[in-house]
């Protein structure tokens, strides 16, 4: 057996791969569900926070800034571990899925809020004044004039940040979440063969590479043309 054959037999062992393919696919379903949930709740909550912040109520804004800063400062893995191992001590038990979802949603929420807020504040005062001078209310101005311009500015940074954070679903492995990496890791220790890891790597590329390529396209498309 040549070295190449040995390599193939070790890292791309078809028998092992066939055996654990269902597990990896199951892990992919969990990863997809989790990622979609995080995107919806994280970006949604971030937008809501940015809108509340635009009302300029001092104490509320201090609270928002603190929460956003907190979840931008902490490593996502620390948040996941803290929620998963910490909450039971407070009498609340959160599953691995819920812990990972909650942690990464909070992180994405915080980054999204900052990005939305930067977008809103980058729209010139004159836009507010022109709209208000024609009698539009604060809310009408925000939704009809400011947000459509601000959101355009946020598309590219938000897409990049969203990819970086949803990739973090792999961190769920640490709290025994049965997503792709978790499934692959246990398959490796059961079969004593690294092929499931190679499948996991391929699975992540299948899921995220199209998103990354799409993001490149979006970035080019939404570059602000004046």
């Amino acid at each position: 057996m040549s070295a190449w054959d040995r390599f193939l037999k070790t890292f791309f062992n078809t028998e092992v791969m066939a055996k654990y393919l269902p597990d990896i696919l199951q892990g992919m379903v969990v990863t997809i569900e989790l990622a979609l949930l995080i995107v919806v709740s994280g970006i949604g909550a971030g937008l809501v926070l940015a809108l509340i912040r635009s009302l300029a109520i001092r104490p509320v804004n201090w609270l928002i800034i603190f929460v956003v800063d907190l979840f931008r400062s902490l490593p996502p893995l620390v948040i996941i571990v803290l929620i998963y191992f910490g909450l039971p001590a407070a009498g609340i038990s959160a599953s691995a899925f819920v812990s990972t979802w909650l942690s990464l949603s909070l992180v994405l929420m915080s980054f999204a809020e900052e990005i939305f807020w930067a977008g809103i504040t980058s729209i010139s005062r004159g836009q507010w004044e022109a709209a208000r001078s024609t009698g539009l209310s604060f809310g009408q101005t925000l939704f009809n004039v400011i947000l459509p311009q601000a959101l355009r500015l946020t598309v590219a940074p938000l897409t990049n940040r969203t990819i970086a954070i949803t990739k973090g679903t792999a961190l769920g492995t640490v709290v025994a979440l049965h997503e792709i990496l978790g499934m692959a890791s246990s398959a490796v220790s059961n079969s004593y063969n690294p092929s499931p890891l190679m499948m996991a790597a391929a699975a992540y590329l299948v899921l995220f590479l199209p998103v990354v390529v799409g993001a490149r396209w979006i970035e080019a498309r939404f570059a602000w043309k004046r």
Binding site: S124, G126, Q127, E129, A130, A131, S133, T134, V145, Q149
Partner: peptide
């Protein structure tokens, strides 16, 4: 009605 120096069109 108000008209601004910098137009401020949307």
């Amino acid at each position: 009605g108000m008209v601004f120096q910098s137009f401020n069109l949307y």
